[in-house]
Amino acid sequence: MKNSTFFILILFAFIVGGSSCQSEAELNYIRYYTTGKQLYESNCQNCHGNDGKGLAMLYPPLTDSIYLKKNKNQLACIIKNGLKGRIEINGQVYEGEMPAQAKLSDIEIAKIITYITNSFGNQQGLHDAQAVNQDLKYCK
């Protein structure tokens, strides 16, 4: 009996100790990423797919880390205002129209960007609401 109480105490100490090892920044990233996944599922996944592979030549994939890196500061604008015309991804030309998601708030867009740019083979870290707010001032 005594032994098991001791064991539970040790376990508890590990859990508490372990979680406090995560910095505030890491926690914030996890918060963004987790909600970002849910927002992606309800706003983006129909076309871009659960694996981010898109659909044939109709909807472009989100697996091109070079495109996503190069256009990181335009991603918020693309989500908010939509995208029309030719784009080149992984050497393929896509020509279509992505609908605007004007109803999404800055923080929701930030969460989606954090999710996308850290999934499907991408690893770019947190992109927070403030960054999105800045991005949206300079839409092309």
Binding site: N46, C47, G49, L55, L58, Y59, P99
Partner: peptide, 10 residues
């Protein structure tokens, strides 16, 4: 259509 159709045709 950007709701169910992409899923259907996938």
């Amino acid at each position: 259509c950007n709701t169910i159709c992409p899923k259907m045709h996938r």
